[in-house]
């Protein structure tokens, strides 16, 4: 499947080194349009602009967590379809299930590899495609 490499991606993490790493990995995968936010609370107004086709977020952030950000996105009629990937050190089964319940599209536990990120992104957009087809059919 061909993924649109021109999509706008928002990378949310409170550690700038991790944002840098994620951006570099996404660049290696052929993506080029990124914005950054250092917390859920700064990401949310950015997302509300409707600009982003894909959100990659950390969980544990000081003001608004990634899971809360996900819930905000899913509760908004205009934004709720936005693919949302959590990349996080949070590794409790109960947390992963909670994220699934909140509507996460993918979940990667840190530390992770470029290959894992690639596979997850492929999978997420395959499913987005399937959803679109199902909605159109």
């Amino acid at each position: 499947m061909q993924i649109d490499r021109d999509m706008n991606i928002l990378v949310v993490d409170d550690f700038s080194t991790m944002r840098r790493i994620v951006k570099n990995l996404l660049k290696e995968l052929g993506f080029s349009k990124f914005d950054e936010a250092d917390d859920g609370s700064t990401a949310w107004p950015m997302i509300q602009s409707g600009k982003y086709d894909f959100i990659v977020s950390d969980w544990n952030m000081p003001e608004m967590t990634g899971i809360d950000l996900l819930r905000h996105v899913r509760a908004n009629d205009k934004l709720k379809e936005t693919p949302f990937l959590l990349i996080t050190a949070e590794a409790k089964r109960s947390q992963i299930l909670e994220a699934a319940e909140a509507g996460v599209d993918g979940y990667i536990v840190k530390p992770f590899t470029a290959a894992t990120l690639n596979v997850k992104i492929q999978k997420i957009f395959e499913r987005v495609e399937e959803r679109k087809k199902a909605a159109g059919a």
Binding site: T65, I67, E90, K92, R93, V109
Partner: peptide, 22 residues
Amino acid sequence: EEMRGIGPNVTKSSQQNVVNSQ
């Protein structure tokens, strides 16, 4: 606490019921 996010599970007591891999 879990919903706030607890960070990496680095202590012995926090490593209960944790996934080990992707």
